[in-house]
Every structure is written in structure tokens, then in C-alpha cells.
């Protein structure tokens, strides 16, 4: 298969699989009145999922070899502190990203 056409096919597959995954909970719970437990999960699940997402973003770091994930952990910590103080995500994200990019180039 032509390389460019093949890439379009992959994009199509990724799009279809992704929309099917996204639609699944709506197909399961969409037609009937929400059970009490689903309503409850809608409220509490985001709290759990968000932490899992942060761990997901950091899954590539190695704690057993240098630099022991230090640039990532320092930047995450900095971002959390900034957000606690400033309560505004844009400077928190911008500064921690800039610091991260600097750390991986210079210190580590």
C-alpha cells in the first residue's frame, strides 16, 4: 500500500476506535434513567481519574537510574505549588514547562 494512503487508513482506524470508546458509556447509560450509583460515580470518579492521569503522564520516568525522574518530579512539584499560590493555571503550566525544558537540557 502507498505510504500516504496507508497513513490515512491508520488515521481512519484511530478515529473510529476512539469514537466507539467515547460513545460506549453513553450507549450503556444514555437511554434510561441514571441509576443512583452511576450518578454518584459521575461526581467522584473525576477525583480519582485525574490523579491516575498525572501518574500516566509520569509513567516513563525511571526511579532506579539517573536522573531518577528528577526533572519531571521537580517540575510537577513546582507546578502544584504555583497553582496553589496563584490559582491560575496558565502561568503555572507555562513556568513549569519552561523549567522542565531547561532542566532536561542543562542540569540533567
Amino acid at each position: 500500500m502507498n505510504d500516504q494512503i496507508y497513513a490515512f487508513a491508520v488515521i481512519g482506524i484511530c478515529a473510529v476506535v476512539t469514537i466507539m470508546i467515547r460513545a460506549l458509556p453513553f450507549l450503556v447509560f444514555g437511554s434510561k434513567k441514571l441509576p443512583d450509583t452511576v450518578d454518584y460515580l459521575g461526581k467522584v470518579l473525576p477525583g480519582a481519574i485525574m490523579i491516575v492521569l498525572v501518574v500516566y503522564c509520569l509513567r516513563g520516568i525511571s526511579l532506579t537510574s539517573a536522573p531518577y525522574g528528577a526533572p519531571e518530579l521537580i517540575s510537577v512539584f513546582l507546578c502544584a505549588i504555583l497553582q496553589l499560590i496563584l490559582k491560575n493555571s496558565i502561568p503555572s503550566i507555562a513556568v513549569s514547562t519552561a523549567v522542565y525544558m531547561m532542566l532536561i537540557r542543562t542540569v540533567f
Binding site: I21, R22, A23, P25, F26, D39, L41, G42, I49
Partner: peptide, 8 residues
């Protein structure tokens, strides 16, 4: 598949 829960 977890995200839609509670958003219907």
C-alpha cells in the same frame, strides 16, 4: 470509556 459516566 470511563469519562462518559455521569455526563449523559
Amino acid at each position: 470509556m470511563f469519562y462518559g459516566i455521569g455526563y449523559t
